[in-house]
Structures are given as structure tokens and as C-alpha cells.
Design a protein around this nucleic acid. Structure first.
Lengths: 129, 129
DNA sequence: CTCCGACTTCGAGTGCACTCCACGTCAAGG
DNA sequence: CCTTGACGTGGAGTGCACTCGAAGTCGGAG
């Protein structure tokens, strides 16, 4: 009932149909997506929830290969929660280091911006005067 | 005097010698780096300061092509500060949007981590008991 | 029955940012 | 004189993550 075509799933997830197929091929999903009798994929709520998690991992910079490892752990079922946790904690650390690096660089860029603002603003007033 | 070989510049900037040559070829620097009589590059303080700025832009995700545009503006000399400012402001906006997206995704991942922590920790105590 | 549009597969192509290779040159040390 | 090592060049190669193309299938509208 609540199963979507690939086009609908693409719309829901913000990915393209191409990317959804690619993720499935590459083992990033929890298994093969169900098929209608026509052979067309039917995405369930569970698929979409998982794809959202994949999207979060990707959006925070986790490489495809690590997402695949994580998916493999989840696919295996219960019992490896500690491994999953390790993987997520390691990722979290990477992301946080990167966030603080980017923030620091951004501050330096802001400094540059402030310099240009003080050199451009007076020129604008002069042009306006 | 205060000019460095490419190996030293690489060490100082955290880039590889390969990357330094690549950046120069690709127009990311402010001009051709000076050469010793041997033909070897000699990086000045000014070169290093600029390369640091390039590094900041790259580290915050600015595409090579935009860095090249920015370098071209700076190379042109005074008079285009407004354009440089526009470029940096546009970049700043992209970076900030991305920072907040990543932060939001990270929070969701943290939520997942918390779930695993509460499922793993009791298991550990059980194993310890 | 025919056509259309949405899907299927497999494999090739793309864009980005490096990264490396092969070969050549030069200055200094033994 | 010969070797060594750091550097030079041009161009090819790599890894990643998609992204697309070609050709085929299927269900439903006209």
C-alpha cells in the first residue's frame, strides 16, 4: 500500500532514480528492494527510513564504502550493535573535527571579508556622493 | 633569503609538492613562482600567505574553478574589491548553509548513537557480571 | 493492435581534484 | 668523472561518486 515507485522514492528522498539504483547495486541498502509483478521497484517505508539514514551519513561525508560496511552490519541483524556504534562514533569524531576546522577557516575568511567591506563601503559612499 | 624550496613550501602549507605545482599550473596562485638559477621554484612569504588563503577556501569546499576566479581578481590588482567581496560573501553563505545542514544531520546521527549506546552498555555490564 | 511513458539492465562516461610516471637537468659530494 | 638526490616538465592515471546512454519490457490509453 504505502509503497512507492522509484520516481516517488526519488522525490521523497531528494536523490535521483539513478542514484537509488546505484545505491542498491552497491550494497548500501538493507537488501534488494521489492518488485512489483512488472519488475518495477517498490520502496517501503522501511526502505525510505534507511535511505534517509544513508543520506545523513553521506551528507556528513561518510564514504560510500563505510556506508556499505554499516549497511552490512545492520543487514546481519542483532548482535553487532557494538560494531555499529564504533563505526558511528568514529564517523562522528571525523565530522566534528571537520566542522571545527571549517569553522576556523570560515572565521579567517570572515576576517578577509571584513577587510574588503571596509575598503569597499567607503568607495561606494564616495561613488554615491 | 626567506624563500623556500618546493619541499619546504609543501611542509609549511601541508600540501604536497605535486599539489603546489598543480595549483600553479591551474592558475590558483597569483603568478608564476620565482625560480632559482637552477630552475627550481623559490616560494616567498607572500606566496605562502596566498597559498594559505587558497587552502582555507579549498578546506571550506570552494571549487578549484572559483579559487581560480578569485586569484584572477587579486592578480588584476586594486579596483575590483567589490567583486572579490561578492565572491567571498557568496562562498560564505554556501559554507554556512552547509555547516548547518551537516550539524543537523549530525544531531540525527547522535540520536542513533544514543540508541546504540543504551542497547550496548547494558549488554557490556551483563557480560561483565 | 499500437503507442506511450515509466520503468528495467549493463556498462560506459563524466567531473573533480589530485597523484603519479618517465625522463631530463643540475649542483654537490666522494 | 660518476653518482645521488632534489627538482623540472608534460601528460597519463587514479579514486570517488555519481550520471548517463542504449536497448529492451510492461501496463494502460486510444
Amino acid at each position: 500500500m504505502t509503497s512507492l515507485s522509484i520516481a516517488e522514492a526519488a522525490e521523497q528522498t531528494g536523490l535521483t532514480a539513478h542514484t537509488l539504483r546505484y545505491y542498491e547495486r552497491d550494497g548500501l541498502l538493507l537488501g534488494s528492494v521489492e518488485r512489483a509483478s512488472s519488475g518495477h521497484r517498490r520502496y517501503t517505508e522501511r526502505d525510505l527510513a534507511w535511505i534517509q539514514m544513508v543520506t545523513r551519513l553521506r551528507a556528513t561525508g561518510m564514504p560510500i564504502r563505510d556506508v556499505r560496511r554499516y549497511a552490512a552490519l545492520v543487514r546481519q541483524g542483532e548482535g553487532n550493535e557494538a560494531e555499529r556504534l564504533d563505526l558511528l562514533l568514529a564517523h562522528r569524531e571525523v565530522v566534528e573535527r571537520q566542522l571545527s576546522e571549517v569553522t576556523a577557516h570560515l572565521r579567517a575568511i570572515d576576517h578577509k571579508i571584513a577587510m574588503y567591506e571596509s575598503s569597499v563601503a567607503p568607495a561606494e559612499s564616495a561613488a554615491g556622493a
